[in-house]
Design a protein around this nucleic acid. Structure first.
Lengths: 211, 211, 211, 211
DNA sequence: AATGAATGAGGTTTCATTCAT
DNA sequence: AATGAATGAAACCTCATTCAT
């Protein structure tokens, strides 16, 4: 779609451009729908260059997955400080996820497809990431329960709720824009998760667990 | 994978078997990852039979989409009765979605992939379905607000929350089972949305909007 | 192209309709370009009916060839009477060919394609027909030479000239009509071989051999 | 990067070999009867190479048509000099067509099949070529009429006569050789248009139009 | 480091033919 | 006599990958 000028700059450019293009194409078309030709075209390199630098389609996909959902726990949990009250920690956790999704618009489609295919391509780090996130979330909730401000709930379900809400909202944007019959009110919602939407979701999640 | 007995029964069997097999394969592999050969194998028919009865891969996919997410509003809104109090209506709405997802396990992966690719294959009815669901949900929420039991919120966001939570929970089952490092507690969650999970999500959603 | 009503009349209708349709399709598309489906469609019968009554595509093509260029010598030589002067005999021969071509518009394309593929499907009768025609033509020319009104020439070459001229004129009609850049004068020539064209060709052939 | 001259003589070979093979196969079997596999086999390349360099079967056929009957007017009219008397010009025109047909033995079958299917694949240049040829022929004839040596006739009909005679003679060679019952005299005619045959046809055509 | 050319394996689709009724 | 359904074989075409430079 976006033809790329073959502006060769510094060394290593090629690899970066390949990864960017690959991320775009994989996120738009999925693994099976992606053509290596198309990635090469968008990256402005010869197809063989991809094989020279990176390897096959599978390897390339792995790289993309790693760069998109690798070490995501880091980003999500970075802001959660020990000295915050649990309510603030929850807010930080929610906002971090929102920022992660918004800063990386290719993430939602890729994760949804990966989930749909049973995570066939998830790198090992994903399990550890989920573990860390659920662990921290459990701590936050337990602390809240102890302080009498949260109800007791299942952390994993809550996590699915936050992730699911946000990703579905994000991923539904193109559909909202395209389909006829969708109510005008819905169409006018912002494609990205802007402050209004973020606030609304944050509010609902907190209301759901607040005593 | 499942070899199918070539049990030739009544007429029309072939078409039904083809659609069933196609739904399975498309849901497992996505459009690009699906091989027509595989569908034929699982349906126990010759590949050409698919073309004779239905047409190409694209048409077949369209049929699958139609049968899986066509007229889903019907099922979801069927139980919402006029004389219920808004809280009951919300519960009915949530439970209907859960049942729809559980009765049709192929739905979650297919919808997630479709969403990921911008709904390229959604039939026109999907727009109308979403419109009807959002419409009914809006009515329920407004009624609840009027009666002083619900807070005011954005119906579409709430819908994304319900759908997103449920589909992510459902679709994450294989990943939970497979990945190492996932906490034991999480692994032991049921794959399907059983009563416990359903009740938890229902509870959280209602808490989120209840005044 | 012409959809045919499935008007079942007398018995044997089907076979006749099949042969008519087959002649049309083979003449338009050639053997390789013809689809048995298309013949069935145009004949208004089920594809299997063709196999039931006639046999495979090859057999059907044979039948068409036989009916189109079988015993053509009969028609061409029928009018040549013993008591005519050689000039009249030549005219009769030319006019008979013209009438044969005009009465059977499917003949020209079929013959041209058969010739192009080396007559792979010619039935044995074709050889005998050519022999008879060349024989009679030789007689006519020799008689003319003896009477001092014709020059001596090679009968087969003359035959190719008559047949070639007429078939090329006839077969070029669609091309004349379709291509741009063709001079208006040429476009306005009649598609069929009308009296004017017939007379012109007859005149040229006779001038060519007349002393 | 690209060497100016094909250093090994190997580059571009593939395309040339493909076109040669394609011309042969299409001329022998027609479009519908041609298998891309067969072309690849004869060209000594992998089937995919054809698609890489040229595109699909249809495109390949177009290229063949272009190379076989593209700019044929050039060759036919090249020898016709202004200062020749009209009779010489006619002879040149006839001999040029003969040479064109003889130098390109694939031409006759391809043109005959194309004509039979209404010139579906003729490139635009064909119309212009016919226009130019008819134009020149008209000039020659008018000049002859003015000088009192030609009769008045329809140029297009005369052109069909020349082309038709020659192509039918040429294309009938395999049939003459194969069929039984064909008179020995006819069988012994040369397959190609040798000097004897060329002279005979030239003589007949000139006699036909000479006053 | 990078590429144009080439290819084997396998994809979707077509088609002449047969089968069961 | 006639047909809707079904199919094996083979057609066209694609695509991830490798090769030679």
């Amino acid at each position: 779609m976006e033809p790329v000028l073959p502006s060769r700059g510094r060394k290593g450019d090629a690899v970066a451009r390949i990864l960017t293009a690959a991320t775009a194409v994989f996120s738009e078309a999925g693994f099976g729908g992606t053509r290596v030709d198309e990635i090469a075209r968008r990256a402005g390199v010869n197809k063989a260059t991809i094989y020279y630098h990176i390897g096959g389609k599978e390897t390339l996909y792995g790289e993309v997955i790693r760069s998109v959902i690798g070490n995501v726990a880091e980003k999500i949990l970075a802001g959660v400080k020990e000295d915050q009250p649990p309510e603030e920690k929850m807010k930080t956790y929610i906002r971090s996820i929102i920022m992660t999704i918004e800063n990386n618009p290719r993430m939602a489609p890729i994760m949804m497809r990966e989930l749909a295919s049973g995570g066939a391509h998830f790198p090992p780090v994903v399990g550890r990431d989920i573990a860390r996130i659920i662990g921290t979330l459990t701590d936050i909730l337990e602390e809240g329960v102890k302080k009498g401000i949260f109800i007791s709930t299942v952390p994993f379900i809550l996590h699915m709720m936050v992730i699911g809400s946000l990703m579905f909202y994000r991923a539904s944007a193109p559909v909202r824009a395209k389909l006829e019959w969708i109510p005008e009110v819905v169409k006018q919602l912002s494609a990205g998760i802007n402050e209004e939407v973020a606030g609304e979701i944050e509010k609902l999640i907190l209301r759901a667990i607040s005593r």
